[in-house]
């Protein structure tokens, strides 16, 4: 979603994105936020610049915002990290909140099951090196 019109979105797809995305076009709707109205509500509209800054929101199936990240324009996102967070939220949701994903978790790494026995004992199950890939 940007403050560009849907017509500009079409031109961007036709003239540039189609050369980056191999087949089938851009696989998600490209939303237009004229006047930054939606960005304003989400807190990512920069009034001075007249644009939405680089905000990314993870919204769960109940419509609840589980996480967000906001960057100034010159630095791009890391999609792998976004997907890792999404997978972590899905694991937690799948366990109905019984499990937590510690720092550095990614699919295949151990999750934690919070409870009285784990209090003060996280050090036995989680090592500092696990915070990194």
């Amino acid at each position: 979603m940007s403050t560009d019109s849907m017509f500009v979105h079409k031109m961007w797809v036709d003239h540039e994105l189609s050369k980056m995305v191999s087949s089938g076009g851009v696989p998600f709707p490209m939303l237009s936020d004229g006047g930054g109205r939606v960005g304003s509500v989400y807190g990512v509209y920069d009034q001075d610049g007249g644009v939405d800054v680089r905000g990314r929101f993870i919204i769960d199936p109940d419509g609840v915002i589980q996480g967000f990240e906001v960057l100034t324009p010159p630095v791009g996102r890391n999609v792998s990290e976004t997907l890792r967070q999404l997978q972590a939220f899905q694991v937690v949701r799948g366990s109905a909140g019984a499990q937590a994903t510690p720092s550095g978790w990614r699919p295949g790494k151990a999750v934690l099951t919070p409870g009285p026995d784990l209090v003060g004992n996280v050090w036995k199950e989680w090592k500092v090196g696990m915070a990194f890939d």
């Binding site: 940007s2 644009v51 939405d52 680089r54 993870i58 919204i59 010159p74």
Partner: peptide, 14 residues
């Protein structure tokens, strides 16, 4: 699950 992404503009650089 929804990823809602804002960005400054089409034809920009990051």
């Amino acid at each position: 699950w929804v990823l809602l992404c804002f960005y400054p503009g089409d034809f920009t650089f990051a």
